[in-house]
């Protein structure tokens, strides 16, 4: 559905992206994951035809973004990082405007607005001025705008940025729902967002793609089984020493931790069961035993260093 090959883009002398290639199949929900400034927005802008690359090609549904931009634009709904809203218009007028420039037939415009308003739960604000809407509503109007005209592909650039937790949840649920019938690209720097909504993930870091994999693989990377955190009710240095000697593992106590420590297994041996039993039998009061979860930055670091090793 989307085929991107060797995209490179410089702003003046700063490289935004270099040699970015990936494909997205019809019906995929792809998370485009990367820290701020990694080149996500640049890539989205190129795919939507807003901006040309310095080199490389992007094809959407078989149409080259720069040879046949109109064909591409007909098929893509796009929510940029800042929802493109006119503050001086009412929600309804705005959606009417967008529907007509997207080429929705005049007769069907009202039905189409009805459909997306329902889906994005913005019917109650249809007569309000966009300038008076809360951030959450603005975002939802932005999403409504993107799915107007029923495009095959929908691209969201940082859709939950600046929203409160409830709104974040609503927007993610909405995106998940949309994903059932469309090809979706979701660009974000929030790992759990990708976990919640996507099936596949493309990780971009400093303008390079560092991984393209099913979400399960990324999750596995993220949960390192060979290092676990242990917290106990009755902590003592003695316990740490005992575990270290008995199980032949490395122990590491982070400075801020007062009632626990990290255990690192060597040779990929999983000794969680034994250790748990030991602590419980010893009456230390096991509170927690869980694999370490890497932060997004750690995942990036791992991915990028792996790349170098390869």
């Amino acid at each position: 559905m989307i085929e991107v090959k060797g995209l490179t883009k410089f702003y003046k002398h700063i490289r935004a992206i270099e040699d970015v290639s990936f494909t997205v199949e019809r019906g995929d929900i792809v998370g485009f994951l990367g820290p701020n400034g990694a080149g996500k927005t640049t890539t989205m802008k190129i795919i939507t035809g807003f901006m040309p690359p310095d080199s490389g090609t992007a094809k959407v549904a078989g149409f080259d973004v720069f040879e046949q931009p109109m064909e591409v634009k007909k098929r893509i709904g796009y929510l940029p990082e800042n929802p493109p809203l006119y503050n001086d218009m009412t929600v309804n007028d705005y959606l009417k405007f967008v529907a007509s420039i997207k080429g929705v037939e005049s007769k069907k415009i009202n039905d189409e607005i009805e459909r997306v308003s329902e889906k994005c739960a913005i019917k109650d604000v249809s007569k309000r001025l966009i300038a008076h809407l809360s951030k959450g509503y603005r975002q939802r109007v932005g999403i409504a705008q993107a799915i107007l005209g029923n495009p095959e592909i929908v691209i969201f650039d940082e859709p939950t940025i600046g929203l409160d937790p409830n709104q974040v949840f609503e927007v993610r649920t909405l995106i998940k729902e949309l994903a059932r019938e469309k090809t979706v690209i979701l660009s974000t720097h929030i790992l759990p967002e990708v976990e919640m909504t996507c099936k596949k993930v493309i990780v971009i870091h400093r303008g390079h793609i560092v991984a393209t994999e099913p979400i399960e693989d990324l999750l596995r990377r993220r949960k390192r089984i060979n290092e676990v955190v242990i917290r106990v009710r009755r902590f003592s240095l003695e316990l740490m020493k005992q575990i270290q000697e008995k199980f032949n593992v490395k122990i590491n106590q982070p400075p801020q931790m007062e009632d626990g420590f990290n255990v690192i297994f060597e040779n990929n041996e999983d000794k969680r069961e034994e250790i748990a039993k030991f602590i419980v039998d010893g009456g230390f009061g096991l509170l927690e035993l869980r694999p370490i979860t890497l932060s997004l930055e750690d995942v990036f670091r791992e991915l990028t260093t792996e790349e170098k090793a390869a």
Partner: peptide, 14 residues
């Protein structure tokens, strides 16, 4: 300034 330019430029309008 409002970034609505992106909307105009990514919809099928010449």
């Amino acid at each position: 300034r409002l970034k609505t330019y992106e909307l105009l430029m990514t919809t099928p309008v010449s």
